[in-house]
Design a binder for these strands. Structure first.
Lengths: 246, 246
DNA sequence: TCCGAAAGTTGAACACGTTCAAATCGGAGA
DNA sequence: TCTCCGATTTGAACGTGTTCAACTTTCGGA
């Protein structure tokens, strides 16, 4: 769903090594690291963020508390591992959707729906997560420098979506649409997190309504009458989020 | 600026008494309570949220730690006192603006600008505050039941603004505009909190650009060509935030 | 084979938010 | 004045995230 940190926060001593190809690394340290991550993810999922103590994570992974802090600078850092796990899952599900040839709206709906489904089992946890991600300067903040990579990865999904659509639209809007969709998704995540209807039904209803509306607006951007609306909107966006900036 | 909790969180033993007319209450308990609040506000402002410990607050107020917890269920509860202080200040500044007879846009700009000014000295603190307010279920969350009152207070400002404007607009939009403005303000707060430009210049620039744009959109809502845009937008809003619900 | 440095690991210790049983206070009624 | 009883206050104690000095393991090179 969302799109938060991806890069390693360079404070950990194991960070540099870890940065280049962690998957291939089978050294002792990497094994320990992964054991900790696995325990953290499982326990977060089972008991939530607060109730899962660092001592419990360490014990479950079969290491000492101090050892966990050798690999992760803080409990919050383990949260971004949890987030990464889900983002990978979302990415995998999104791939075939992008390949499919349906309309912009249908594919956007599908992408958003998959995001909701991936996160659904962790709705309660996500509530805490958003609290951590919302604070500026936090490495998991979607606006932080640390998550530039993740942000670009997320917008690149929308980029591919937009590039592969034949829907006619204002060319300037087209250039910015991926970022706009990313922003919209961010808003949706916030909404979803606060949605207490069973199964987050209301969020799904919002998607089903909002996406066609968006499609309509995008299509309308070509019309002369809507030109000032589009142009001024894009000018505003340029101030809010200059194109050059990541 | 924002619009978060206002009501007492009923868990404190002193809550019921406090609820009815705290201003007039000069009992010992109320004096203690106010001493704690005053210390908390001052220390939060001076050193930020994390660095201000409950022990420091209690010591500064001349009471024991346990005593602070007799009046406030958690450190976070003191944050909402800080928020309330600033909201009162904002409200006071907004009053003359509402009374003034300038255009919708000018007054909206002024309201938002005053909010930014009131909060400006506490930009760093607000970053933490938003992290607390963003987590669902938190009493300071702008969407929580506890902050219904504060939410209505905030929307009532925009209600008065809208009611007293002669700008022609779609009547259905008019009915919903206060809530839309409240949502927009919420977004602005999030943006402001993450704005690291000196003096949060960029946020101010966004306001100066966004408000006329909004005014333009509101005016356009009367035109026939924009009817579907307006109608569908309002339908979407009705799903996102049903009118009946606070 | 041995050495030394780097990587990895440990658990006690610290500071913090929070809880709670017990002590104290203050005023209404006898 | 004395006696309760609820309101208020206390500080020690608990559980938590985090730090750190010391220890152990690993491994490349002499």
């Amino acid at each position: 769903m969302g799109s938060v940190t991806h890069t390693d926060n360079g404070s950990s001593p194991a960070a540099e090594q870890a940065a280049r190809g962690r998957a291939a690394d089978t050294s002792r340290g990497e094994q320990t690291r992964q054991a900790i991550v696995a325990s953290a993810i499982r326990l977060f999922g089972e008991a939530g963020y607060e109730k899962t103590t660092m001592r419990a994570i360490a014990a479950d992974a079969g290491v000492s508390v101090g050892n966990a802090y050798y690999y992760f600078p803080a409990k919050e850092a383990l949260v971004s591992e949890f987030y990464l796990e889900l983002q990978r899952e979302h990415l995998a599900r999104v791939e075939p959707i992008l390949a499919g040839g349906t309309s912009l709206g249908d594919r956007l709906s599908a992408i958003l729906r998959e995001g909701i489904d991936v996160w659904a089992p962790h709705h309660a946890f996500a509530g805490r997560f958003i609290g951590i991600a919302a604070v500026p300067g936090s490495p998991v903040s979607p606006f932080s420098a640390e998550s530039t990579q993740a942000r670009e990865l997320a917008t690149s999904i929308f980029q591919r979506l937009v590039d592969s659509t034949e829907t006619k639209m204002d060319p300037q809007l087209r250039a910015r649409l991926p970022q706009l969709l990313w922003l919209a998704q961010l808003g949706l995540v916030v909404y979803w997190v606060h949605d207490t209807t069973p199964g987050q039904r209301r969020t799904k209803a919002v998607v089903e309504l909002a996406v066609p509306y968006l499609e309509y607006l995008v299509g309308a951007s070509r019309m002369k009458i809507f030109r000032p609306l589009t142009t001024r909107g894009l000018t505003l966006l340029e101030t809010v989020w200059p194109h050059a900036a990541g």
